[in-house]
Write a protein that binds this DNA or RNA. Sequence first.
DNA 1: AATTATTTTGTAAACGATTACAAATATGCC
DNA 2: GGCATATTTGTAATCGTTTACAAAATAATT
Lengths: 329, 329
Amino acid sequence: MAQIKDVARQAGVSVASVSRVMAGHTGVSEATRQRVLDAVQALDYRPDLAARRLRSRRTDTIGLIVSDIRNPFFTEISRAVEDMAYQHRMRVILCNADEDPEKEALYLDLMRDENVSGVILSPTLPTLARFRASDYPFPVVLVDRCDRETAADAVVLDNVDSAYRLTAHLIERGHRRIVFIYGVTSATGRQRHEGYITAMATHGLETLAKGVPATVDAARTAATELVSGRPLPDALVASNGIILLGLTEALQEARLRFPQQIALAGFDNLPWTRLVEPGITVISQPTYDLGQAAIELLLQRIAHSAQSVRRVVMRGELIERGSSAKRGG
Amino acid sequence: MAQIKDVARQAGVSVASVSRVMAGHTGVSEATRQRVLDAVQALDYRPDLAARRLRSRRTDTIGLIVSDIRNPFFTEISRAVEDMAYQHRMRVILCNADEDPEKEALYLDLMRDENVSGVILSPTLPTLARFRASDYPFPVVLVDRCDRETAADAVVLDNVDSAYRLTAHLIERGHRRIVFIYGVTSATGRQRHEGYITAMATHGLETLAKGVPATVDAARTAATELVSGRPLPDALVASNGIILLGLTEALQEARLRFPQQIALAGFDNLPWTRLVEPGITVISQPTYDLGQAAIELLLQRIAHSAQSVRRVVMRGELIERGSSAKRGG
DNA sequence: AATTATTTTGTAAACGATTACAAATATGCC
DNA sequence: GGCATATTTGTAATCGTTTACAAAATAATT
């Protein structure tokens, strides 16, 4: 394996010049530059990253800690982050915290050890509650989950507003007893719950919400119980795609057709939501964009550590399908 | 930030002793061991990974190059790999090649630069065709995709057999004009196609297959065309979950009910396949196990580079649902 | 107790790059 | 051409560990 000194010898220059050329530095003559490049080519020289990182104290690596990689939402975020990162010649270390605050803490520690340039994090509620950007030696951009108080760069959906619009949409379609089933482990669940509450209150309706762990099973169980009571709710609304899946399964098991017997809606425009007849009304999140914005924000922060704290809020899009239609209609 | 020499001073020992304790080496007395540990604790010392990696020439990092992170199959693989890796105190660098051989090559190069301990790869067809383990300075374990000729550690499904069983199942249910729609970009598509061919031939039936790029859109388009001709096929079979999604969408758009008008089946037990009435018959892949087996194989290979080449084949499980039922029944 | 074998410890040389700093060379201006 | 300035180059220190090797301490054997 060729080393920098081999290249220097081959090119007839000093190692410093080689290093400068490799770094794309200015202040090196075109002549030497070309000779170095030729030598690099001839020897198939590739700088040793460990050495470079040790000396330069930079890793050009970013950590991505997602709360649940199985959730297609985060998959898409990861994809965006990864795409952009490699375009900026940065590496990505992916960590899946599985909605477990301990794992999250562990991974954040690991990021410190790795001396990453920055981290993109979708925190669980406990972590978010005590989150202080200054606790970490690297910049952190929150994605998807953030609350009013948190002073950190973040990229999020307009959760409250989207939930409001989704709820209002159902009310407009004539539904009254609307039950909101939301994930209690995440900030998004709570915020969407808030939007639901506001919408119901604004229309003078009684709120009927149920918090559950953000798993398909928990959602299914909760929904099964809900629809076994009487009177049947007019509509069920899920705070995210995982929960929506659970609700849909529950309705199917209970042999309840939507929207004839009960309406259904939720967050996340997953492929299957338009597949189950007559399609499920959802708030579609711009997932790829969210991820892209997150890493762009992070790169900016890395470049200008002193810039003011930013929050990017993206609008969710209501996609109306059959599941939310008027009962009588 | 405390360094090893600070710890050494604090503990009243040499840096070598500290290093030995940190590495969990034997040959250090219990007394010094304890003093070092105390000093480490007191100073909150964390070894600098860049320095360690430079000197030891080991990174304890593995590269995971998946062909399409949006495919839930690979998501689950990633999850397994990541879980196991961190349990073995190894890092994971995730790369998404997006079914693009060039990106794949680029990432494999990057793995070389990173000096990874090993790589888990699900190669595209071109990459697989010219794959020679000896071309890489690190061990590689193939996952999901591998062919007869390739001399490399691999973990795969029994593709041919599973496809055979799935096809035979449809034949048994009385279907005759069975069309197999498969992804031409991957080895799995071809192998499953092979199983289909064998099953059809064994039963004296004409084969009707169509290769498509492994995307939802391509599959939908192909299926739409297929079902617009007459006579209508008895059944459509998809070689993976992405294609199955496309087929299902096409049938829905064409307002064809299954199994009444046309039967449907495929690979990958995705959550939605049991959601669309009356459920889709699928071959379920043990995804998490596949990932787990892959990294275990890799770790073994890293530990014993000379061990003989291994192939782990896992059995797919036929999950029978309504979509494959007898037409008349 | 002397000798040998074994375990534990310390010193100092790597690992392969980056980067101050100084020296050398080129350029501009009168 | 001579001087000041700007640009380009090279030398050598440095990043923070690991580890070969030798030395010291301890244990085992006679």
